[in-house]
Design a protein around this nucleic acid. Structure first.
Lengths: 169, 169
DNA sequence: GCTATTTTTGACGTTCACGTAAGAAGCTAT
DNA sequence: ATAGCTTCTTACGTGAACGTCAAAAATAGC
C-alpha cells in the first residue's frame, strides 16, 4: 500500500492558478483532489479520515460547500499516512495517538493568544509529551527491527561461511 | 494485533506429558492448539495460513488425521508473524517472500542427499539470496523509521529550546 | 472401552479501510 | 449564462484476515 493507483494522474483542468505543487507552500487553500495527490491518497480516503475524526471537522467550509485545506492539513495527512504505513497502526490507534496532536492545534491557538508565561510553558510541555510518545513508538519499532536484522545478519554469516568452506568459484 | 484474546489461557486438560514450552525443544510433535499458543496465534489462523500456502501442505499428517507440527514449523510461523507485524506485509506478499524459504526447505533436503560440491554451492548461494532479500526489506524499513525519528527529534529539540527560553520551573 | 478434550471441515459472519457508482450541487473559465 | 469539470452525499460493494458456530471425527487419559 504505497503506490496506490490513482483515478487520474493529474487534473485535466488546465488554467488552475498554481501547478499543484506550489499551491502548498503559498498560503493558498486547496481542494480535496489536490490534497489527495499531494499526500498520495484519494479524496475518498481523506473524507474517510475526516469521518473518523482524524482530521478536525472542516469548519473551514464556511467559505463554501466544498472542503478546503491548507498546508497544515496536508502535513497532518502526511503524518497520518507515515504512521499508518511505517508503524502499521490502525486508524483507531492513530486517532488515539493524534488526540494529543489535535489538542496541540488548539494549544497553538491559545498560545498566540495568551501572554501568561506559566501557561505558555505548560502548553509547550504538553506538546513535548506528545512528541515523546511518538518517539517511543518509533524507537521501539526500530529496536524490534534491529533485532530481526541481527538474526538475519547471523544467518547470512553462516551461509557465507559455508560458501567459503566449499571454496570460492 | 499483538495481544490477541485467546479462547482460553491454557488447556484445561491436566496430565499432558510436556508443559507446552518444553515440547518445542524436544523433538516432539505438537498439535495445533499448542502451536497456536507458542506462536501467539489461534488454530484458525494457522489453518488459514496453511490454506494460503504459507505453510507447506501438512503431509505430516500421514501419522493421523490431525495436523502435527515440529519445531521447524513453529519457527516458520513465528517468522511469518514477525514479518507480518513488524513490516506490515500482507499475507500475499509474505507468500511471495517465503517462496524462497519454502524452496530452502527442499534445498536442505537435497543438500543432505547430494555430495556434489558445485551443486551444494549453488543451493547455499540461493539461500543467501533469500536472506539478502529479507535483509533489504528490514533495513529499508529501518532507514525510513530513522528518518521519521530524526524529524521527531528535531521537533523535540525545538520544544525543549522554547522551554528553556521561558526559563526552567 | 469410555469419557472428556481437541481437532476437523465446512460455511457463514465480521471488522477495517477504503473502492465504486449515482445523482445532485458547486466552481471555474469563457 | 453555459459548458465542463470537481466535489458532495449516500449507499452499497470489496478484499484481507481472521472469528465463530455446528456437527462429526479423532485422541488422550483413566
Amino acid at each position: 500500500m504505497g503506490a496506490v493507483p490513482h483515478t487520474g494522474a493529474s487534473p485535466a483542468g488546465v488554467g488552475l492558478g498554481l501547478p499543484s505543487a506550489e499551491a502548498e507552500r503559498s498560503g493558498a487553500r486547496m481542494r480535496i483532489g489536490e490534497v489527495a495527490e499531494l499526500t498520495g491518497t484519494t479524496p475518498r480516503t481523506i473524507r474517510y479520515y475526516e469521518e473518523l475524526g482524524l482530521l478536525g471537522t472542516p469548519d473551514d467550509r464556511i467559505q463554501g460547500k466544498h472542503r478546503s485545506y491548507g498546508a497544515a492539513e496536508v502535513e497532518r495527512i502526511r503524518e497520518i499516512v507515515r504512521l499508518r504505513d511505517l508503524l502499521g497502526l490502525s486508524l483507531d490507534q492513530l486517532s488515539q495517538l493524534l488526540e494529543a496532536e489535535t489538542a496541540r492545534a488548539e494549544i497553538r491557538a491559545e498560545l498566540s493568544a495568551t501572554a501568561d508565561g506559566a501557561r505558555r510553558r505548560e502548553l509547550i510541555a504538553q506538546a513535548g509529551q506528545h512528541i515523546e510518545t511518538q518517539l517511543g513508538l518509533v524507537q521501539g519499532r526500530i529496536a524490534e527491527l534491529r533485532a530481526l536484522e541481527a538474526t538475519l545478519l547471523a544467518k547470512r554469516a553462516r551461509v557465507t561461511e559455508k560458501l567459503v568452506e566449499l571454496g570460492e568459484p
